Lab assay of single mutants.
Amino acid sequence: EFTQISGYVNAFGSQRGSVLTVKVENDEGWTLVEEDFDRADYGSDPEFVAEVSSYLKRNGGIKDLTKVL
């Protein structure tokens, strides 16, 4: 089950073990991109978060400006 990723309007994530599946949706709710990120592939949590965040930004993730990150 996908849940909204904090700080984004149209990005959602689903966690299974160490694998986080993220997706970005358009205004109609269609999935634009979907990608798996395995936490085990990264040396640290900040590196993992930075990679996921960068992916979302590159692929149309819209920041939720009503929330302070």
Rank of each mutant, 00 (worst) to 15 (best):
E51L: 07
L56K: 01
E1Q: 12
E34W: 11
P46C: 15
E34C: 15
L69V: 14
V19Y: 03
I5D: 03
E34M: 15
D36F: 09
L65F: 11
S14T: 09
E28H: 10
Q4A: 10
E47N: 03
E25K: 15
S53I: 14
E51C: 13
K57C: 15
D27G: 10
R39Q: 02
D45F: 13
N59Y: 10
V22A: 00
K67D: 13
V49F: 15
N10A: 02
D36T: 14
D38T: 02
V52D: 04
E34G: 05
K23P: 00
S14M: 14
E35A: 15
V49W: 15
S54P: 00
L56H: 01
E1N: 11
F37W: 01
E47L: 06
V49L: 14
R58Y: 08
G7V: 04
V33L: 06
E1S: 12
R58E: 11
E51W: 07
K63L: 14
Q4I: 13
Q4R: 15
L20K: 01
G60Y: 07
G17N: 03
S44Y: 02
G17L: 04
V24I: 14
F12M: 04
Y55N: 03
E1C: 15
L56R: 00
S44N: 06
T31I: 11
S18H: 04
D41N: 12
K63Q: 11
T21R: 14
L65G: 10
D45I: 08
Y8G: 06
K57P: 05
N10W: 04
E28Q: 11
F37S: 01
F37D: 00
D64W: 08
D38A: 02
S6G: 08
L69H: 13
N10P: 01
E25M: 15
S6H: 12
N26P: 01
A50Q: 09
S14G: 01
V9R: 09
D45E: 10
W30G: 12
A40Q: 09
N26L: 08
V68G: 13
T31G: 06
V52N: 02
D38W: 03
Y42S: 01
K67M: 11
R16T: 08
K63A: 11
D27K: 11
E25P: 00
G17T: 02
D41V: 07
D27I: 11
T66M: 09
I5R: 03
K63Y: 12
D41W: 08
G29M: 03
G13P: 01
Y42K: 00
W30Q: 14
E28Y: 12
E51G: 07
V33Q: 06
G61Q: 03
T66C: 15
S14F: 12
V19S: 01
L56F: 00
E1L: 10
S53F: 13
L32N: 04
W30Y: 14
V19K: 06
F48C: 03
K63V: 14
N59Q: 05
L32S: 07
R58P: 02
G17D: 03
G29C: 05
L69R: 12
Y8Q: 05
V22E: 00
I5G: 04
Q4N: 07
R16Q: 07
G7P: 07
N59K: 04
V9Q: 07
K63E: 13
R39I: 04
D36Q: 14
K63T: 10
E28W: 10
D36C: 13
L20T: 03
I5M: 08
F48K: 02
L32P: 03
R39A: 03
R58C: 13
P46L: 15
K63N: 07
L32Q: 06
L69I: 14
D36N: 12
T3S: 10
R58K: 13
D41L: 09
G7L: 06
G43C: 13
E34N: 05
T66A: 09
T3L: 10
L32V: 12
F12D: 01
K23T: 08
V9L: 13
V68N: 12
S44Q: 01
L69N: 14
G29Q: 04
S44D: 05
V68Y: 10
K67V: 12
A50P: 00
V33I: 09
V24S: 01
E34Y: 10
E28G: 08
K63W: 12
P46K: 15
Y42E: 00
D38G: 02
D41S: 09
V68Q: 11
G13M: 14
K23A: 04
S54D: 15
E51D: 12
Y8N: 07
D41G: 06
W30L: 13
A11S: 02
E1D: 10
D41Y: 07
R16K: 10
G61K: 02
G61S: 05
D38E: 02
G7H: 05
S44L: 03
E51T: 11
N26Y: 06
A40Y: 07
V22T: 00
V24N: 00
K23R: 14
V19C: 07
N26T: 09
Y55D: 05
V52C: 06
Y55W: 15
R39C: 08
Q4K: 14
N26R: 05
V24D: 00
T21C: 07
G61T: 06
D64S: 10
S18L: 06
E28N: 11
G7A: 03
V19D: 01
K23D: 00
S44R: 01
N26V: 05
Y55G: 04
E25N: 11
Y55A: 05
E28S: 11
S14C: 15
F12H: 04
L69F: 08
S18K: 04
S54N: 14
T66G: 09
E47C: 08
D38L: 02
I62M: 08
L20A: 00
V9H: 08
I5H: 04
N26M: 06
K23V: 08
S6F: 11
S6Q: 13
G29P: 03
N59D: 01
G61W: 05
N59S: 07
G60A: 05
G60R: 02
Y42N: 01
Y55V: 02
E35C: 14
S14D: 02
K23H: 07
L65M: 10
L69C: 15
R39V: 02
E1H: 12
V9Y: 07
T31R: 06
L20I: 07
E1K: 12
L65K: 10
I62F: 07
Y42D: 00
G61F: 05
D45M: 09
R58V: 08
G29S: 03
N10R: 07
I62K: 09
E1A: 11
K23G: 01
R39L: 05
S14Y: 13
F12K: 06
G43A: 13
D38P: 01
V9D: 03
S14Q: 11
L20M: 05
V19A: 01
V24F: 03
E47Y: 03
F2K: 06
K67G: 13
N10V: 06
D38S: 03
A40S: 10
T21N: 03
D64C: 14
V22C: 04
E35R: 15
L69D: 14
T21I: 07
F48L: 03
A11C: 13
E28I: 09
V9E: 05
V9C: 13
T21V: 08
K57G: 10
G13K: 10
V68K: 11
G7K: 04
S53Q: 14
E25C: 15
F48I: 00
L65E: 10
R16A: 07
L20P: 00
Y42P: 00
N59T: 06
Y55K: 06
Y42V: 00
V24R: 00
N26H: 07
N26W: 05
I5S: 04
A50C: 13
E51I: 14
S54H: 09
